[in-house]
C-alpha cells in the first residue's frame, strides 16, 4: 500500500470517534489502489488502523463489494432482482455472458471484465439496470451490450 493510501486512511480515521469506524471506507481506499484485497493488503489496512487482521478480514469478507480475489479492470454488475427480472434481465445477462465468454462471478482471461449478478441497485425505473464501475446504465437491451462494453478498455 502506498504512503498516500495510508495517509488517506489516517485522515478517514479522524472523522470518527472510534477508528474502527473507518474500516469500511479504508478498505475501499485500499481496494481502489490494489484492485482487490489480498491478504497483504488486508494486513496493511489492519496495521494502519491498529486493528487485528482477523477482524479486518472477517469484516471484508462479509460485504459484497469487497473483492478478496483478483477481479477484472472493469466490474460489471447486472441487477437481477425483481423489477429487473420483470424487464428482461435474464436475456441481458445471457448476452453479457455470451459477449464476455464468462459466467457471473468470473473474470475474462484478458482481465478486462468481471461479471456479477447484483441485487437491486436502487435504479428500478431504469430496469434492467447495470452498473459498470461507477457508471449506471439504464434499460440496457441485449443489443446494447457490445456498444456499452466498447467504452471500457
Amino acid at each position: 500500500m502506498t504512503e498516500a493510501a495510508r495517509e488517506e486512511i489516517r485522515r478517514l480515521a479522524g472523522l470518527y470517534e472510534h477508528r474502527q469506524s473507518a474500516l469500511i471506507p479504508a478498505l475501499f481506499v485500499a481496494q481502489q489502489e490494489a484492485g482487490y484485497l489480498s491478504p497483504a493488503v488486508l494486513e496493511s489496512v489492519a496495521e494502519v488502523l491498529e486493528l487485528p487482521v482477523t477482524e479486518v478480514t472477517s469484516v471484508a469478507s462479509f460485504y459484497g463489494l469487497f473483492y478478496l480475489e483478483p477481479v477484472g479492470r472493469h466490474m460489471v454488475h447486472v441487477c437481477t432482482n425483481l423489477s429487473c427480472m420483470l424487464n428482461g434481465c435474464q436475456r441481458l445477462l445471457s448476452r453479457m455472458q455470451e459477449v464476455m465468454g464468462i459466467q457471473p462471478g468470473e473474470t475474462t482471461p484478458d482481465g478486462r471484465f468481471s461479471l456479477r449478478a447484483a441485487e437491486c441497485l436502487g435504479a428500478c425505473e431504469e430496469a434492467p439496470a447495470v452498473l459498470v464501475d461507477e457508471d449506471r446504465w439504464a434499460a440496457v437491451s441485449p443489443e446494447g451490450v457490445e456498444p456499452m462494453l466498447e467504452r471500457y478498455r
Binding site: 432482482n81 425483481l82 423489477s83 441485487e119 437491486c120 436502487g122 435504479a123 428500478c124 425505473e125
Partner: peptide
C-alpha cells in the same frame, strides 16, 4: 442504504 428491492 436504500436496499429494499423496488425502492429508488
Amino acid at each position: 442504504d436504500e436496499g429494499e428491492p423496488g425502492t429508488f
